[in-house]
Structures are given as structure tokens and as C-alpha cells.
Design a protein around this nucleic acid. Structure first.
Lengths: 155, 155
DNA sequence: GACAAGTTATTGCATCTGCAACTATAGTGG
DNA sequence: CCACTATAGTTGCAGATGCAATAACTTGTC
């Protein structure tokens, strides 16, 4: 229980939490942008495509329903429809009918998509070597993972 | 010096660093989206506008050049031009000629912009109370700030 | 079984953003 | 003073995304 007026009341724009939130936005923006540029240059793969392929590989079945993709990559369902359109057009994923629910669509990664993802992942590893491993120790990365996981908790 | 093949060679998609990078993207996407929704509902203020106003308040002079704004919020200069167009149209900022360099434009926050930002900051503090303070202790937030700062280092 | 309500994906439309080309101005070396 | 190069900002254009409306299907209730 605080009995004094916190600094934030005096100057919210320099409040410790406001600064942290801004730092999170900024760090994400810079890292994701610089990685997106590299991925585009080396693999001709948009970051959003990479995210989709990565999420698909992370599921045991290698496929997700449209709304699960949207949830996983934090897009609207409408946006996800067009995104998957483009990935399918490029032959990296495939829409499959769901036998148990005719409204649902399964999005499955194709062989070509797997190859592309392998490519992208090797680029990603190199990028992370440069931008993660060189800046944070292994322990620090573990600590950051714990903190972001807590922060990311849905409740 | 490692003498064994690291796990990442076997399965990059579950490499500790790949997971951390994905976690950073995900955490940022969820937090910024949910805050953007609240800001839009309560203040009718797009998140990008809030970012601009906050950056302007953080400078001693209350103004930045166009390219400094672009750098601060991680936008292209072209995108920043339109963004400032909209903010100026709404009366929240003002373009000012720079006496020493006739190419440059100073973007200054207006009185109305300051009021709007005060509004938004009070909403922001409430949001952070719910989503930051409830999930991370003060020490954890300080630790996260340190880690993100290291990660964000330009080099 | 039939209707109401909920769920899933898609589409029209509007908006936002980046890239590359362009204009205007500043700095530099002769 | 004159090129030449670099920098600041804007604009045309194309692409990506969200929202709301819609169509197709499922589930629950009577």
C-alpha cells in the first residue's frame, strides 16, 4: 500500500511501465523489421508467410484450421483468408476439407512449403546468432523467455 | 566451444532462440492489439497516433523533425508523411518550418494534442495496471527492461 | 424434424503502410 | 560560382490488413 503519490501521477510519460511498454513495441518493431528485410532478400519470403509456415510445422499434424492460424499469428480471420490465399497460390500450403465439419478448412503445409521453411529457418538461425546470441547470454535468453511468457499470459 | 551437434541442427523450429523470437512477436502482437482496441474505444485514438504524441512529449522541445519521428516510431518516411498529415488534420500536431534548414519540417505537439495525450496516458496507465503490474512484479519489470534494452542495442 | 442461435470462412470496402521516384535544399570540392 | 553529391520530405502506386456483412454449416432446444 502506497502512501505517497507515485511519480507516474506527476509525469506518466516517463513512468517506468510506460517506458517498458514503449520499449517492447520498439524492440519488436526493429527486430521484426530487420529480420523481415533479410528474409525477403535471401528467401523472397514475407515475414507473415514465415510465421504461418512455422506455426504449421509446430503442430503434430502439420495443419491448422483457418481460425487457429489466425489466432496463432494474431491476425483477423479476414486477413488470414487472404494471407492463406497467397501462400496457397505460391504452393506453400494447401487448403483441405474437414470431414467432420464442412464449414472448417484445414491448412496444411506442402512439401514445397517444408523446403521453403527449411531454407528460411537456416537464415533465421543465422540472424538470431547475430542479433540474439551476441546480445544476450544463454541465461539471459532463458530469463527473457520466462518474463515474456508471464507477460503473455491470457487471463 | 561446442563439440556436440546442437539441438537446433536437428530441429530448428523448436530451437530455444527461435522460440524466444516467436514469443517476442506474439507477446508484442497481443499486447499492442489489445491496447490499440482499448485506446480506440476510449479515446478514438489510433495506436500509431499515440506513439507519435508520446515521442513528441518525450523531447524537451516537444518537437521532432519528420525523419526523427519516422526513426522513433519505426516507420518509413513516406508512411510518416501521411501519418503526420492525419495528425495535423486532426489538430493534434503542427508542422513548422525550420529556420536553419529549409528542407526540414519540425513536428510540434499542439495544446489539443497535449490534452489528447493526457487522456490517452490515463487510459494507458489503467491498461498497464491490468496487463503489466498484475503479471510482473516491480523487480521483474526492471529485469525485463534491462533485457529488452540489451536486445534493442543497435550496433 | 424445425427453428434459433452460434460458428467458420470468405468478400467488399476502406485504411494504412512501404517502396521507389521526384522535388527542393544543403553541403563539398574545384 | 559551379557542378556534384547527399539529405529531407512528399507523392503515386501497389500490397496487406481489419471490420462488418454475408453465406454455409452446426448445435441446441422444443
Amino acid at each position: 500500500m502506497e502512501t505517497v503519490i507515485p511519480l507516474s501521477t506527476v509525469c506518466p510519460s516517463s513512468d517506468e511501465r510506460v517506458t517498458l511498454f514503449a520499449l517492447l513495441l520498439d524492440t519488436n518493431a526493429r527486430l521484426s523489421r530487420s529480420f523481415a528485410v533479410r528474409l525477403e532478400e535471401t528467401c523472397a519470403l514475407p515475414l507473415a508467410w514465415f510465421e504461418v509456415l512455422l506455426q504449421l510445422r509446430r503442430t503434430p499434424e502439420g495443419s491448422l484450421k483457418m481460425n487457429e492460424v489466425a489466432e496463432a499469428i494474431v491476425h483477423s480471420t479476414g486477413g488470414t483468408t487472404r494471407l492463406i490465399d497467397r501462400l496457397e497460390e505460391a504452393g506453400l500450403v494447401q487448403r483441405q476439407l474437414c470431414p467432420s465439419d464442412r464449414r472448417a478448412i484445414h491448412v496444411a503445409i506442402t512439401a514445397q512449403g517444408n523446403l521453403k521453411l527449411d531454407d528460411a529457418l537456416s537464415v533465421h538461425m543465422g540472424y538470431l546468432e547475430e542479433h540474439l546470441s551476441s546480445r544476450l547470454t544463454c541465461d539471459e535468453r532463458a530469463e527473457l523467455t520466462v518474463l515474456l511468457t508471464k507477460l503473455n499470459a491470457t487471463r
